[in-house]
Design a protein around this nucleic acid. Structure first.
Lengths: 333, 333
DNA sequence: CCACCGCGAGAAAACGATTACTGGCGCGAG
DNA sequence: CTCGCGCCAGTAATCGTTTTCTCGCGGTGG
């Protein structure tokens, strides 16, 4: 059914080894043989079996990208950056959706190992419980993005989440907000932790009282942001500022605010992480901490390809600048 | 370095064959051997090499999904449907981003073939020039989604694009629009063709004159939608209705309309294909043709898995219902 | 009591490629 | 002229599994 290298060899009256040599072009092969082989190849429509090849060479030209949420434009934009770098050197990129779920994440890491992917880009579902040992065991390089793993043993690309959250919170404080609420991501992710810490640091720096009722943890999804915000608004003393720690939750929050008739920015100043590139049409325009998503992807891919190429220097943590873009949603002055 | 089945066999003092049998659980193996093997497996942390396994069995438990644009929530939502069905029967799903680019698409189809994926879900970049023969040659089942291939030889899941476009256009006409413009997708995609045809049919049915200046082709991306709309607005006789044939272009269109100070729906009634989940927070609310994205993914996966399972009945075209959801953006009465 | 049958486990072939090794040939140098 | 070296292509080993085949053992039936 499928045509193999032996079929080609037979058709060209040469040995399989010669066919292989022609195809990989590493060593010289006599002109006439090469021509016969090439003719046979495209007459038969031969495609090498990638599995067999990879099994033998112990290397694929495929990078795996295991992201936390495939429906989040933050991650998909990043993927574009990875792809562009990878394709330039002839690597393919496949995506897997871990869905913020440790079991799925693990499963896909095992797939990556089983398929002997050349390298993996991962945004770990949990800083503590994500287990990347399966990759290490197979010698597969890993770069984390957006989130980090403890120990500092693996390369990472991210932004300074603590600083970014702090700046955004201080911005809200500077706008006169006294009760600044925070919709946090899962505390098991490094970004969740650091953004929360940055928020708290900003409150201290601004001389504002930290109030546990003002912090809600959600799951980085739209519905979670919605519910967290509804809760925040149901308290006796409503917040007058709100920072949401990712884009999807921000959408949920906005909907909740709208439904409750909260006017932005008059009643509440609003800011969130991760612009949604398409939010330009929203009014009021949003104040966001914008991450260089495409660049994050690029850098991650570059780091990874360097490792794939044999670089075994110490782990690097690339920290890219995030920008606080102030829009109408937080302008109260 | 990596631990193989022979290592396990040696550790358990059995033959590799026995280890394989224990792991796959097909045939009975004596209790004591089984226990020894299992102990050795998790003492050594053994993971079977997927490449070798797939090479031998000529089958993987991986489905490939090659989509036209990974940053488009329409496609990623669909992926979730595919995943849920696949994971339920222990298949993994990997994504590839063809980027509406025939070369990249081809490349990923070849990767799918080379990796001997069990099946492929594809939204073809071109109805005519997309070449899926590499899959056929390897006997890899294929299901197209959102778009179809000519010949009716492969399973597909989509909506009735002609009807949907027609209904939306007729709705705009019923709102009193006389000059209804259309921002079309690439004419090389089946959806692009059919939506355009539906639009034209509606104009005829409504007794409206069809005017070529009212139709702009763009590329299914935000910027394309923006530019097309700017052009439409720059004509002497501005349209008073606009249908945009996908979600990303709709965003671009909205931005253009906003910048040009066009009031929706007073100056222009607006409708578009493919809801954007977060558009709920937009004012005015949008009139959209909403596709059952998750369900499209589910059905595609089910069809595909049936084929993987050996079903070789005639090709099926599943047509799911789309719903015209009327929002404020088109309500002029 | 022997032969055969069945069963369970090991030996070995296979999957389809790459690549180390081998052998033959041609050419150059001694 | 002969020896040897180098080059090129073919043979065969190899990657890590699965699976067929084979073999040995024990039990049963004739």
């Amino acid at each position: 059914m499928a045509v193999t290298i032996r079929d080609v060899a037979a058709a060209a009256s040469v040995s399989p080894a010669t066919v292989s040599r022609v195809l990989n072009g590493k060593v010289e092969v006599a002109e006439d043989l090469r021509i016969r082989v090439e003719a046979a190849v495209d007459q038969l429509g031969y495609r090498p079996n990638g599995l067999a090849r990879s099994l033998r060479t112990r290397a694929t030209m495929v990078l795996g990208v295991v992201i936390a949420d495939v429906t989040n434009p933050f991650f998909t934009a990043m993927v574009r950056g990875i792809e562009d770098v990878a394709q330039a050197v002839n690597y393919s990129v496949v995506l897997a959706n871990a869905d913020e779920d440790l079991a799925k994440e693990r499963r896909y890491l095992e797939v990556a190992a089983a398929e002997q992917m050349a390298g993996v880009v991962l945004s770990p579902a949990s800083s503590r419980r994500t287990d990347v040992s399966v990759l290490a065991r197979h010698g597969i390089p890993l770069v984390t993005v957006d989130r980090q793993l403890p120990g500092g043993a693996v390369d990472s690309v991210s932004i300074n989440n603590h600083l970014a959250a702090r700046q955004a919170t201080e911005h809200l404080a500077a706008q006169g907000c006294r009760r600044i609420a925070f919709v946090s991501g899962p505390s098991v992710t490094s970004t969740g932790q650091r953004r929360l810490a940055g928020y708290r640091a900003a409150l201290r720096a601004s001389g504002l009282r930290s109030d546990d009722d003002l912090v809600k943890r959600a799951d980085f999804r739209v519905d979670g942001g919605y519910e967290a915000t509804v809760e925040l608004l149901s308290s006796r003393k409503r917040p007058d500022g709100l920072l949401v720690s990712n884009n999807l939750m921000a959408l949920g929050a906005l909907q909740a605010l709208q439904e409750k008739g909260v006017d932005i920015p008059r009643d509440l100043a609003f800011a969130s992480f991760d612009g949604i590139s398409w939010a330009r049409t929203l009014r009021p325009t949003l104040t966001v901490i914008e991450q260089p998503t495409y660049e994050i992807g690029r850098r991650a891919a570059e780091l990874l390809l360097a490792r794939v190429g044999g670089d075994d220097g110490p782990a690097r943590d690339v920290v890219l600048p995030a920008e606080l873009k102030i829009g109408e949603s937080s302008s109260r002055l």
